[in-house]
Amino acid sequence: MDIYKYLRKEKLPHIWCPGCGHGTILNSFVRAFDKSGLNQDKTVVISGIGCSGRATGYLNFDSLHTTHGRAIAFATGVKMANPELNVIVMTGDGDGAAIGGNHLIHAARRNIDLTVILFNNQIYGMTGGQFSPMTPEGANATTAPYGNIDRNFDLCQLTKAAGATFTARGATFNPRQLTNIIKKALLHKGFSFVESFTQCPVRYGKLNQTADPVDMLKLQKQKTADIKKWLQFSDEEKEIIYPLGVLNEEINPENEYTFRYQKIIEKTLEKGVL
């Protein structure tokens, strides 16, 4: 597998901190893309602002590094204008779940054929460690110096409830599973959402007694379980353990938004209403 053809080698090394998990997600993504068989020239990768936002600059596709939180809205325009393109959004927990949360649920509601990969490092890394909607309750952040009292979203449940026809969760401690998940998401016709836990030792770990990235990966492993195993858990266990894997998949390409709009176009043409 030549994964380097999907990377802009001259842009490497990347700017992410030592120990950061974002490179692992990027690695899983390019491997998944290769396995998907999709056309590299017909693919656009779009990101917003934050550490995740830099991912698109390293990828050898048409790429767009947009404003904070709005990547999905830009992506909706690209996909709608040319539904032949594969449109992939890379976002973060601040970018995608806070400032861009509204676009996330509305793109899910439309079931437009985008693949959204959300890099969840549970912190605003690039701005220096402020708490995000995904920072665990009780954890420390520079803007939660006495412990975070904000509750989290369950982003997979949220997007599923909003109408996403594919939701999945992965983690950087298990890149093989993450690769498989992303591949399935890329091939899904409809809105597909992949959340991936990723470690941020520098901004999150240091404030929360886990400055060693290996410790963070171990912690990820402790706090997650494969969906098959997870379903056997007690309700109490389910409360504290996150399921990993494909959590929801509805196959119905005719329910996809650009397909449905094309039907409108055909209807107006049949009527000859020009």
């Binding site: 656009v44 779009i46 048409d62 767009l64 947009t66 404003t67 709005r70 809205a73 830009f74 992506a75 909706t76 325009g77 690209v78 996909k79 709608m80 204008a81 040319n82 393109l85």
Partner: peptide
């Protein structure tokens, strides 16, 4: 945002 995306497409 969407019209910027469409313009690029």
């Amino acid at each position: 945002a969407a019209i910027v995306g469409a313009s690029l497409a």
